[in-house]
Nucleic acid binder design. Structure first.
Length: 731
RNA sequence: GGGUGGCUAGCUCAAUGGUAGAGCAUCUCGUUUACAUCGAGGAGGUUACAGGUUCGAAUCCUGUGCUACCCACCA
């Protein structure tokens, strides 16, 4: 006798139970029944350990879970490796904020205590994001979960560093770098962001005897000028090039040489640039070329140095005001102009960057980037959508050496004697696709043996100890990521993999759309423009959240998030539920009505459609023919769409098929057919077959409701396969 | 300054050079026991603009406008 299905689908009563059913059954672990089969592998982009789930995560992890679940149902050995990133500056900032609330600073605690404090924080809060991924339904192999600062990973980082060092690609140098005054650390070029904002452009001369006027938004830095650059073609200034003047600017005496530089824009300002080698990356390069002195007038705390004379000790902005006052008093200020300026800020704390000369570690890029560039150019690593290929190539063509040292306390300490600096977080993230699989230990045939790959007896005999994660699962299959970390992360994984593994880390990069809010603005917690996916899951269910996101994910265009899509998906989940309910009620009626032993056993109906059962699938009416033909079409289109990352199209096709072809047309027709004795059995069979196939196709998108229905079918003897998550994908 | 997208129904978005569609919203009708989280039907469009190619253009080409983002950082 059948258990009655509730009238509508209730996600809250379902999701946790279904998830633990999967976990307990070991369904998330790869099954390598035949190790000659190429596995399907995705490394999760590791969320920051401090993180909590946002819409970008929700979108990207739904995408990955769909690909993973489909591959698993195709019976391919499938692995999704999860983990978190220690996220150097971000995590340090979070814990510092927490300390600040307690009235403490990290300096008071000291480095060792502070690190302990962070580890404690990671232990307490690090699982939050992982739990949230589970709520989404992500079918990661949690037994392989990694952290970019766990023991093995630290080994990987050291090995990589040593490798580069031995190659002579790591060097230390005094350079002008991007310095965050708040975080008290250097940043790489791509960790600097720019904010457009109104600024004042001041036109003035250093003193009355200097022949050229300059223009600047930062008069306080002009205390450190040692040159003035003009365009060599500029007739106004040609006569001064290579001449040196002694100026007395706001009480500070300097030698200023006029230099010619083609990059100077003759139309901007006065066409002459005061060169401040110590506090501008561009000026530093000009100074190096021309042998100008480097004078540091602002220190690492953003305050004026002794070199700033009477302004010593003032904050840069205070000094700016005083200098403008002085210029006015001396009648040197010619003009103030309102302009829009790009202010450079730290990507972690949004505070103004203060370029500084500083001793840092760099990784030489010229050799490393070559094979990576080749791999992108010849499509060995394919990028989808392909318009990003050009962006990658342009960036790689113009790459600069990577500043890999950071002056923070949370991270991998640079392995060299006496070093207190740590490595850029992205140095360790760059190793993710192979470090997670056991590198460097996995390089030895016996090391890192993968104990929990569920291997068949036969496979065990044939490959035995040689089976290890690194050799079997590397290279991975697809990397799915947001576009804002293309350069920070993806390119660096590519050159790291090609150098250290001698093989690309993945064959496909899928760059998913960015989720904006309905106004087209970036979703941001601090701006209050975000939508919390956990609230959506709470309100509509995980399946609805997933399906709704995919329904509006056209694959190429950024999407403006509309909650209506999630609502529609919730109704859709309920529709699927009720299709199942209808089908089961019909079968139940038949069983009750029938005396046939075969039918009451349900044997005939439980079997998977196979050659021997094809007679049951013989379409007898126009409606029968139509639904089976449409079903075959949607099987085909779902596969094609997913092969090409067309998640939105796949969702639309499934939605239309289920709602209109299956429910509106076939189920309505079936109501008459089951009342016709000679059609009854056949109709029920087609109903059940269509339902089972539909559940399989929908499972990657809506894993919970489909599995729940499957379990109900199983209890009633209507399916053979234990779990939908591992059932055979339809062909 | 260089680059990449986008502009289609009230809103969010689809559409392989061949009758412009969906969801939500709206209107009419329906107490059909799978689902009212439903069903049947309607209305809603000079596809940003201007040219061009074509038998035929939302789609291809040229240009313009608006908009978003990326790279460079301009002092």
């Amino acid at each position: 006798m059948q258990e009655e299905l509730a009238k509508s689908y209730n996600p809250k009563e379902t999701e946790a139970d279904i998830y633990s059913l999967w976990e307990k059954s070991g369904a998330f672990k790869p099954i390598a029944s035949d190790v000659s089969v190429v596995p399907f592998v995705i490394c999760i982009p590791p969320p920051n350990v401090t993180g909590s789930l946002h819409m970008g995560h929700a979108l990207n992890n739904t995408i990955q879970d769909i690909l993973i679940r489909r591959a698993r149902m195709k019976q391919i050995p499938t692995l999704w490796i999860p983990g978190t990133d220690h996220a150097g500056i971000a995590t340090q900032n979070v814990v510092e904020k927490k300390l600040a609330k307690e009235g403490k600073t990290r300096q008071e605690l000291g480095r060792e205590e502070f690190e302990k404090e962070i580890w404690q924080w990671v232990d307490e809060k690090g699982h939050i994001i992982i739990d949230q991924l589970k709520k989404m339904g992500c079918s990661c192999d949690w037994s392989r979960q990694r952290f970019t600062m766990d023991e093995g990973y630290t080994e990987a980082v050291k090995t990589a560093f040593k490798h580069y060092y031995d190659k002579g690609w790591i060097y230390q140098g005094e350079r002008v770098i991007n310095w965050c005054v708040r975080c008290q650390t250097s940043l790489s070029d791509i960790e600097v962001e720019y904010i457009e904002q109104p600024a004042k452009l001041y036109y003035f001369k250093y003193d009355n005897d200097f022949p050229i006027s300059i223009a600047t938004t930062r008069p306080e830095t002009k205390l450190g000028d040692t040159g003035v650059a003009v365009n060599p073609k500029d007739k106004r200034y040609a006569e001064y090039i290579d001449k040196t003047f002694t100026v007395n600017f706001a009480g500070v005496k300097r030698e200023i040489r006029v230099i010619g530089d083609r990059n100077v824009d003759m139309t901007f300002g006065t066409g002459a640039v005061g060169v401040t080698p110590a506090h501008s990356l561009v000026d530093y390069e000009m100074a190096e070329k021309n042998g100008l002195d480097i004078v540091k007038v602002i220190n690492q705390y953003g305050k004026m140095t002794k070199e700033a004379g009477q302004y010593e000790g003032l904050k840069a902005k205070e000094a700016r005001e005083k200098i403008v006052e002085w210029l006015k008093e001396e009648n040197l200020l010619e003009k103030e102009e309102d302009i829009t300026n790009n202010l450079s800020v730290c990507y972690r704390c949004n505070r103004e960057i203060e370029p500084q000369p500083s001793k840092q570690w760099f990784l030489k890029m010229s050799e490393l980037i070559k094979p990576a560039l080749e791999a992108i150019k010849n499509d060995e690593i394919k990028i989808t959508p392909d318009r990003w290929k050009k962006v990658y190539i342009d960036w790689m063509d113009n790459i600069r050496d990577w500043c890999i040292s950071r002056q923070i306390w949370w991270g991998h300490t640079i392995p060299i004697e006496g070093e207190t600096d740590v490595l850029d977080t992205w140095f360790s993230s760059a190793l993710w696709p192979f470090a997670t699989l056991g590198w460097p230990a996995g390089q030895s045939p016996l090391g890192g043996a993968s104990k929990d790959v569920i291997a068949s007896q036969q496979a065990k005999q044939s490959c035995d100890d040689k089976l290890n994660d690194l050799s079997y699962f590397y290279p991975t299959t697809i990397l799915s990521t947001a576009r804002d970390i293309n350069m920070l992360w993806v390119v660096r994984m590519i050159f790291s993999g090609l150098e250290l593994m001698k093989e690309k880390p993945f064959s496909q990069v899928y760059i998913h759309p960015t989720v904006f809010n309905k106004e087209g603005k970036r979703m941001s917690k601090s701006l209050g423009t975000g939508v919390d996916p956990l609230l959506l899951i709470d309100k509509y269910g995980a399946d609805a959240t997933r399906f709704g996101l995919m329904y509006i994910n056209t694959g190429t265009q950024d999407l403006k998030f509309d909650e209506a899509a999630i609502l529609a998906a919730q109704k859709f989940a309920n529709k699927v539920w009720n299709i199942a309910r209808f089908t089961m009620m019909q079968i139940d009626n038949m069983v009750i009505a029938s005396n046939s032993e075969a039918i009451s056993n349900n044997d005939w109906i439980a079997a998977s459609p196979s050659a021997s059962r094809n007679d049951k699938l013989a379409p007898k009416t126009e409606a029968d023919k139509q639904i089976l033909s449409r079903l075959n079409e949607v099987i085909k289109s779902t596969d094609e769409n997913l092969d090409n990352f067309r998640f939105g199209q796949a969702a639309h096709d499934l939605y239309d098929f289920v709602w209109h072809d299956f429910a509106d047309i076939y189920i309505e027709a079936s109501k008459n057919q089951v009342d016709t004795p000679e059609l009854k059995e056949n109709t029920l069979y087609i109903l059940l077959y269509t339902l089972k196939t539909t559940l399989k196709l929908l499972h990657p998108f809506m894993p919970f409701v489909t599995e729940k229905i499957w379990q109900n079918l199983k209890e009633n003897g209507l399916v053979n396969e234990e779990q939908l998550i591992t059932a055979h994908w339809p062909k």
